[in-house]
Amino acid sequence: MSAIVVVDALWGDSGKGKTCAHLARRRNVTLNVRAGAGTNAGTTVVLDDGTQIKARQLPIGWTNPNTRVAVGSGTMVDPEILRAEIERFGLEGRAFVDGRCAVIEPAHIEAERADAHLATTVGSTCSGSGTARADFVLRRARQVRDLPELAPYVLDVAREANRVAARPDETLLVAGSQGTMLSLALSPDYPFTTSANCTAVAAMSDVGLNWRLVTDVVMVVKAMPSRVGEGPLPFELSAAEAIARGIAEYGVNTGRQRRKAERPDFDLLNYAAMLNGATQIALSFCDHYDPAMRGARGADAVTPRIRSLIGEVEAATGAPVTMLDTGPGLSDMIDL
């Protein structure tokens, strides 16, 4: 019996997708299910041959050839993006979506782009995910099961996720979206949040997963946290300094330069660990925090500066750091 939930501790863009891809390969995961608001968050993984994979709807665990992927019923679905990713990644027969997912319509996207509060004040990606969710709450949104063109991909994802997680020889991997501190009902920064909660429990709810089946919550902590859009960012660097240090990042959806911090806020990490019940920590972007870690793949290569950060993160979260992300490549990982 094994169900692993992967969540972001802070404001997203921490490498959850890479963490999921790594776990999918290491654990030979049976099923990787996407949770979260919708297509308002992207993920990027660089394969060992240099191929860059970017996705907004499907989780990235399919990079393990034995892993199927799916979208949980609590996640909004953009039919065009879903079909494009299935085709682009060659996932016919391996990718599924719960028929109860609400559909993101073109009108939802247009409404968000025309909303100055969302586009300017909040800094939304304007993917239509929030407006679709609002229609879903009001019970007037269409669902995936209403679209004949998506019929080949429809599955009761909740039933399949629980079936897989309950089997002694299989593993379920749930991919959370965005970050804990962007949670609609839990962030201290409202209205600078997303349109849903982004905790482990929220991810389980999006998938319909029985909590008794969860064996681990892997919380991804970015060594130099980043944030897209408005809202507080403790220990923030200037955009110019991030560029000068060669650690600037840009959003998958918008192309905007991400705001970047010098280090994590350990009080916020402590709060995130409490909310998520973290059992393991994946410490990501270690090479940005200490360039000497770039591309390291063995525990003997961990630098004193990163070992010091590991100690601080473990003290703040009460959970062990078990993975280190050391570069852009999928194999630039260290298991501790």
Results as ranks from 00 to 15, higher is better:
2 S>Q: 15
5 V>H: 01
7 V>W: 02
7 V>I: 13
7 V>N: 01
8 D>I: 11
9 A>I: 06
10 L>Q: 13
10 L>G: 04
11 W>A: 06
12 G>F: 05
14 S>G: 15
16 K>W: 07
18 K>Y: 05
18 K>H: 07
19 T>W: 04
20 C>G: 08
20 C>V: 15
22 H>Y: 11
25 R>S: 02
30 T>G: 08
30 T>D: 07
33 V>M: 08
34 R>W: 09
34 R>I: 13
41 A>H: 01
42 G>W: 02
42 G>K: 02
49 D>Y: 00
51 T>D: 00
52 Q>T: 12
56 R>E: 06
57 Q>C: 10
61 G>H: 02
63 T>Y: 00
65 P>I: 06
66 N>G: 12
72 G>V: 12
74 G>P: 03
74 G>H: 01
76 M>T: 04
77 V>L: 05
80 E>H: 01
80 E>W: 00
81 I>W: 03
85 E>L: 06
86 I>E: 04
88 R>L: 06
90 G>D: 04
91 L>H: 04
92 E>N: 02
92 E>Q: 09
98 D>F: 01
98 D>A: 03
99 G>W: 02
101 C>T: 07
106 P>A: 01
107 A>F: 00
112 E>C: 07
118 L>T: 08
122 V>S: 08
122 V>P: 05
126 C>E: 10
127 S>L: 12
127 S>R: 09
129 S>K: 12
131 T>R: 15
134 A>W: 11
134 A>H: 14
135 D>W: 03
136 F>M: 14
140 R>I: 15
144 V>N: 03
150 L>C: 14
154 V>A: 13
155 L>V: 15
158 A>L: 10
159 R>V: 15
160 E>T: 14
162 N>P: 03
164 V>Y: 00
164 V>D: 03
165 A>M: 08
166 A>N: 07
166 A>W: 00
175 A>F: 13
175 A>K: 13
181 M>G: 08
182 L>E: 07
182 L>M: 14
183 S>L: 14
183 S>G: 13
188 P>K: 13
189 D>G: 10
193 T>Y: 11
194 T>D: 12
194 T>Q: 11
198 C>A: 13
199 T>N: 06
202 A>E: 09
203 A>P: 02
204 M>H: 06
204 M>Q: 08
205 S>W: 03
208 G>E: 10
209 L>P: 00
212 R>Q: 12
215 T>W: 01
217 V>H: 00
219 M>G: 05
225 P>S: 09
227 R>Q: 08
229 G>E: 09
229 G>M: 09
232 P>D: 08
234 P>Y: 01
235 F>V: 05
236 E>F: 06
238 S>V: 09
239 A>H: 09
240 A>R: 11
243 I>A: 10
243 I>K: 10
246 G>V: 09
247 I>E: 10
247 I>F: 11
247 I>R: 14
251 G>S: 14
263 R>P: 04
264 P>R: 11
266 F>G: 03
272 A>S: 15
284 S>H: 11
285 F>V: 14
287 D>H: 15
288 H>K: 12
296 A>M: 07
296 A>Q: 14
299 A>Q: 14
300 D>C: 05
302 V>I: 15
303 T>M: 11
307 R>A: 11
309 L>C: 09
309 L>R: 12
309 L>M: 09
310 I>Q: 02
310 I>S: 00
311 G>W: 00
315 A>Y: 06
323 M>F: 09
327 G>F: 03
327 G>A: 11
332 D>S: 07
335 D>M: 07
